[in-house]
Amino acid sequence: MKESKAIDADRLGRVQSLVRAFGILDELGAANGMTLSELAHLVGLPKSTAHRLLTTMETLEYVQFDRETCHWSVGVGAFRTGSAFAQTSSLEKVGRGIMRSLVLEVNHSVNLCVPRSHAIFYLKQVEPRGGWPTAAREGVSLPMYSTAAGKAIMACWTENELDAYFEKRELVQRTHRTIGNRDSMRRELGMILERGYAIDDEEQADGTRCVASVLTDRIGQPRGALSISDASSRLKQAHFSDIGPIVASAAKRISLQVSHIG
């Protein structure tokens, strides 16, 4: 019983620290910079507690400290998070119309995908009338390496980014077609980069095929992917060379419009 209470108290303490940290970020976001005393007063914390939270957040780059003025302000980590949200919102807003047009053109489900915790998250899906449900559906996260959308993004990574990904993740065989070898995956990513689109030929799930192309920001960095998916009986291998360039063209239109918004 005592151990259970101790665990509950620890959890409550962590949640409380998280709430306090977000409160600090809110106050810093509304100002150009504040001293420790000013910030502690605004959030209603002892200076020692506020300073402990700030130093932790500084390590994570969510806040920064100017040692000349002794002012704290929002850091680059918070900016990256906010930029990612703005980028995702823009992708969804701009992509909606192009996705609908693409559905009419190819008669397959069209997906807007974004990376999330080294997986690929299906943010939005537009289905054709009488569409066939697949594993690639709105609100689902799937592995990067076994999906066309994920591989389209991975193809744009640097060698260091790929090495870091491979060090932490095993390429588990999802089906008998999944690429489970790192060297084979590197060759596959090279081909994707060259032709402009990626293919999932029943690599994520038996009976499902996908074609995808990367979505980039104004400086060419990968921010998501546009993909089409369908049952293998409807999306034939022979169609890849025709559909791939169509998806790539639609992805470029979305990327161009988003870069103008940003």
Rank of each mutant, 00 (worst) to 15 (best):
106 V>P: 11
128 P>S: 14
224 G>D: 06
10 D>M: 07
146 S>G: 05
124 K>N: 11
189 L>G: 09
234 R>K: 00
113 C>R: 09
217 D>P: 00
150 G>K: 04
72 W>R: 04
23 G>R: 05
194 E>M: 08
95 G>S: 01
6 A>N: 00
175 T>K: 12
203 E>N: 03
253 R>I: 08
255 S>P: 02
243 I>W: 09
132 W>C: 13
152 A>R: 01
155 A>D: 03
145 Y>L: 00
127 E>L: 15
135 A>H: 10
225 A>Y: 10
58 E>Q: 10
217 D>S: 08
262 G>E: 15
131 G>I: 03
125 Q>V: 07
38 E>L: 05
55 T>E: 15
75 G>I: 13
78 A>Y: 11
83 S>C: 10
227 S>R: 05
199 I>A: 06
185 M>V: 03
114 V>L: 11
87 Q>S: 13
46 P>H: 05
45 L>Q: 05
195 R>M: 05
176 H>A: 12
109 S>P: 13
261 I>Y: 09
27 E>C: 12
137 R>K: 06
91 L>S: 04
1 M>F: 02
228 I>H: 11
240 F>V: 04
51 H>C: 06
194 E>I: 07
201 D>Y: 00
52 R>V: 13
8 D>E: 13
104 L>K: 14
149 A>Y: 01
13 G>I: 04
54 L>Y: 08
178 T>A: 07
39 L>E: 02
203 E>S: 04
32 N>K: 13
247 V>M: 07
198 A>D: 01
154 M>S: 05
58 E>K: 10
164 A>H: 12
181 N>C: 13
76 V>M: 14
54 L>P: 08
150 G>T: 00
237 Q>H: 14
208 T>G: 07
235 L>Y: 00
79 F>L: 11
132 W>G: 08
109 S>I: 11
67 R>W: 09
166 F>S: 02
231 A>W: 09
165 Y>C: 05
49 T>N: 01
116 R>V: 15
175 T>W: 08
238 A>H: 14
56 T>Q: 08
225 A>I: 04
176 H>D: 15
165 Y>G: 00
115 P>C: 09
218 R>H: 08
73 S>K: 13
191 M>N: 10
22 F>D: 08
101 S>F: 01
84 A>M: 07
121 F>A: 07
160 N>P: 01
31 A>D: 11
127 E>H: 14
163 D>P: 05
75 G>Y: 15
50 A>L: 03
36 L>A: 07
104 L>C: 10
68 E>F: 06
245 P>I: 00
109 S>F: 11
240 F>N: 00
44 G>K: 02
164 A>Q: 12
61 E>A: 10
86 A>G: 01
116 R>M: 14
213 S>H: 14
62 Y>A: 04
22 F>V: 11
148 A>H: 02
124 K>C: 12
203 E>L: 03
120 I>P: 08
239 H>E: 15
73 S>F: 09
40 A>D: 02
74 V>N: 06
